[in-house]
Design a protein around this nucleic acid. Sequence first.
DNA 1: AATGTATTGCGAACGGTTTGCAAGAGGGCG
DNA 2: CGCCCTCTTGCAAACCGTTCGCAATACATT
Lengths: 140, 140
Amino acid sequence: MELEDILRERDFRLTRPRRVVWEVLSESERHLSAAEIAEEVHRRDPGINVSSVYRTLALLAELDLVRESRLTETSTWEPAHADAVIHLVCENCGATRHHDAALVEDLRAEIARTADFAPSVIDVRVSGTCAKCPAPSTPR
Amino acid sequence: MELEDILRERDFRLTRPRRVVWEVLSESERHLSAAEIAEEVHRRDPGINVSSVYRTLALLAELDLVRESRLTETSTWEPAHADAVIHLVCENCGATRHHDAALVEDLRAEIARTADFAPSVIDVRVSGTCAKCPAPSTPR
DNA sequence: AATGTATTGCGAACGGTTTGCAAGAGGGCG
DNA sequence: CGCCCTCTTGCAAACCGTTCGCAATACATT
Ligand SMILES: [Mn+2]
Ligand SMILES: [Mn+2]
Ligand SMILES: [Zn+2]
Ligand SMILES: [Zn+2]
C-alpha cells in the first residue's frame, strides 16, 4: 500500500515533508539519524524544516512504517522490518549491520509461553567486533 | 570482590560519591534513571552533586560493574547482569521486568558461527503487555 | 602531618528533540 | 474551479538530559 493511502486511511494529509522524508528513508540502505535525514531532505527541498522531519518521523513510527532504534545516545531511523532482522553494532567502527536470526521467533514463543507477558516488538542489539575490525585486546 | 578492591586494582580512589552511588544501585531492585539515582544519593548525602553521579556511573560501567540500558529516551542503570537476563518493558504501565532466556546464548553462538562478527554484549528488549495490564485493543 | 594528584562541586554549555504560534497549504464541497 | 475549514508547517525559542572547565577539596601515600 502506498504512503498516500496509509495516510488517508487515518485522515492524515499527504504533504511535501511527509513524502520527501518517506522517500529518503525508503531509498536508504542503512539506519539514518534525524540529522542525516534532515540533511538529505533539505537537499531535495530546502524549504522543509527539521521540526517537520521530527514530526514526520514520529508519525511514520506511529503508523508502523518506520522503526526507531536507540542504539547509541541519538536515535536512528529506517523503514520497518521484521524483529528477526537484528542489529550488529561494531564497537570499533560503529557500523550497524543487519543479521537474520530465526531464533528471535523462538525467543518470542518462549516468552509468550513462560513469562506471563504478551510480547509485541523484540529488539535485539548485539555489540561486538565486525570482520573488518581487529579483535579487541581484551576479548570478553 | 568489594568495590574498594576493584577500584584500587585499577588505581581509582574510593570516594564518597562512588561509594554512595554504588550502594544505591546495588540496593535497588529495579532499573534507575540518573535522576532517580541522584535523588536517592542526595538523600543520603546532600553534598554529592549530579555530575559526580554521572561520572561515577560512567566509571562503574567502564569497570563492568553496572549496565546501562537505553530502553527509552533516557538511560537507566542497574548492577551488571548476564545477557540471558532480558528486559520485558510493558507498553502500558512502563514497568520493566527481568526474564531469564537461555535462548540468548544460543543466539550468541549462532551469530558467532554464521555472521562474521564477534559478539560481546547482547541486549534483548521486549516490549509488550504485562500480566497486570489489559491486552491492547489492536494486538499485533 | 604534609604532599601530590585524582576527584569533586558548581555553573555554564551542549546537542538532540520538542513546542507554541502565526502563516501556509491540503483537500472536500459547493 | 475556487472557497473554506482545518491540519500542517516553518521558525525561533524552550527544553532536558548529559557533559565540561575550572578552582577547591579530599584521597592515599610518604
Ligand atoms: Mn534495522
Ligand atoms: Mn536489567
Ligand atoms: Zn567494525
Ligand atoms: Zn503493564
